[in-house]
Amino acid sequence: MPIISCSRVTKRYPGGFEALRDVSFGIEPGEMVFLTGHSGAGKTSLLKLLPAIERATAGTVLINGQNVGALRARAVPFLRRTLGLVFQEQRLLYDRSVFENVMLPLLVTGHATRDAARRARAALDKVGLLARERTNPITLSGGEQQRLCVARAVVNRPSILIADEPTASLDAASAVEILEIFGAFNQVGVTVLIATHDQSLVARFASRVLRLDHGRLAA
């Protein structure tokens, strides 16, 4: 049974713009999948349906068998806790340290402080930022900031990792580095879905590719 499944999903925004049209696919547990397409093809719109940031106009989105579109507002936070999200705009908090940025998802889920700190350091270690835990994220390079976002996304040990253009603002070397980190998480069983417009990066991995074209899934 797929861990993520979309069937006949359509997303129409107020004003009539149709971002997604009749999109159906399934992603199996432990899979790593790239979502590609030109800018404006609907990649971000599709990714926003998964954590219920947006709701589909038609069709169903299932995560772990749960119908995301039918979730009550109160249940949404608990869905999001099972997902690791890396956002196109990084959403780092610059009024606190690298360590505290990674701690935030654990505070939200109410982890014991000591256990949370241990997990946050483990996540920072995995992305190679443990030595920078006391610094402010503003002092990090673009690639380091993106790695910090990955650490924050995985600190809650989600079963699904979703990243929207995680390499968009990075040079080639940093981009490869980020994707290799995603690959490492995939190796240990995390389902990974990465949206990117960069075909050359996709080509480096032998992963399945879903290509969006003007809101439709191209074969």
Binding site: P51, I53, R74, P77, F78, L79, R80, R81, L85, F87, R91, L93, D95, L104, P105, V108, T109, R152, N156
Partner: peptide, 16 residues
């Protein structure tokens, strides 16, 4: 605002 949005994205409840 930024912090609130982020907290909601990582699964914070309204009460939190």
């Amino acid at each position: 605002r930024d912090e609130i949005e982020l907290a909601k994205l990582v699964g914070a409840t309204d009460a939190f």
